[in-house]
């Protein structure tokens, strides 16, 4: 197992490559989902305001 993590002496290059790529992809997922939820909540609020105002 240590041999696996050692990567034939290239651990300092292999793992950061995988790490940076993974970090970027995870960040994209989080940003996408947060933006989606924020926009959906704003839209819901605005639409409920409209339906409330209409009967009056």
């Amino acid at each position: 197992m240590t041999e696996f993590f050692h990567m034939g002496g290239y651990a300092a290059f292999v793992w950061p490559s995988f790490g940076i790529t993974a970090a970027i992809m995870i960040a994209i997922v989080i940003d996408s989902w947060r933006g989606f939820v924020r926009e959906r909540d704003t839209l819901d609020k605005l639409q409920s305001q409209r339906t409330k105002r209409k009967p009056s």
């Binding site: 996408s32 989606f36 926009e39 704003t42 839209l43």
Partner: peptide, 16 residues
């Protein structure tokens, strides 16, 4: 997910 968010953002803009 991101395109749907943009579509909602545009709806929000028109409603405002």
């Amino acid at each position: 997910v991101r395109t749907q968010r943009e579509i909602m953002a545009r709806k929000v803009r028109t409603l405002r």
